[in-house]
């Protein structure tokens, strides 16, 4: 059963990945990409790596692809015009494709990794989640923390690059807004007719 499920899901991944580059409309491309992500999560479930599958869906489909979709939808570019000259570059595309294929073949031929039928998704632990937790937070704690610090630096860098202090902008002071009472804002007058205030 699992084999048929694998072939079905793998077929969906391949078709949707192909459609990402074949689709004329860039929004359709992103939608196909989302389907590819989602089906890859299905493959991870098949080998027993449930935690990774859910993380893939939460992080890539739920957050990253939403931002992709955002950007692509907001772009006002005529993509048909943009794509007209792209066929000239086919030798480069073939070159890159061949390099990737060769790398994959080399890795599978000379690699020491176990083959998929004897693959254990949760070595030395009851569940996949526990196994990943052991590896990340115990075995490679230092590397994990370093990765976190690098991400923090990148985040601060992005904020520093885009933050501009503009003194003329009017800001809201939430504390001031919420502490405002009626007596500060409204003044009741009783003007006599014909005189005004």
């Amino acid at each position: 059963m699992a084999v048929y499920a694998f072939y079905l899901i793998a077929l969906v991944v391949l078709v949707s990945a192909l459609s990402v580059i074949m689709a004329r409309n860039p929004v359709h491309s992103v939608l196909w990409l989302i389907l590819a992500f989602f089906s890859s999560a299905g493959l991870l479930v098949l080998i027993g790596a449930e935690f990774l599958a859910m993380l893939l869906v939460v992080v890539y489909v739920g957050a990253v692809a939403v931002l992709f979709l955002f950007v692509v939808m907001m772009l006002d570019v005529d993509f048909v015009e943009l794509k007209q000259g792209t066929l000239r570059y086919w030798p480069f595309a073939v070159l890159v494709g061949v390099i990737f294929a060769a790398e994959i073949v080399l890795a599978t031929v000379f690699g020491t990794s176990t083959n998929a039928s004897t693959f254990d998704a949760s070595p030395g632990a009851a569940t996949n989640t526990e196994a990943i937790g052991q590896v990340m937070y115990t075995q490679y704690l230092l590397l994990f923390q370093m990765a976190g610090i690098i991400l923090l630096v990148a985040m601060i860098g992005a904020i520093v690059l885009t933050l501009r202090h503009r003194p003329e902008t009017k800001r809201q002071n939430i504390a001031k807004q919420t502490s405002r009472r009626r007596s500060d804002a409204v003044e009741l007058k009783d003007p006599t007719p014909g005189q005004g205030i």
Binding site: I34, M54, L55, V58
Partner: peptide
């Protein structure tokens, strides 16, 4: 009865935005 049931719910509900 998923081992990562709560994550599954979280993942699916994060897809609702699409």
């Amino acid at each position: 009865n998923l081992n990562v049931g709560i994550l599954y719910l979280f993942a699916i509900s994060s897809l609702g935005v699409y």
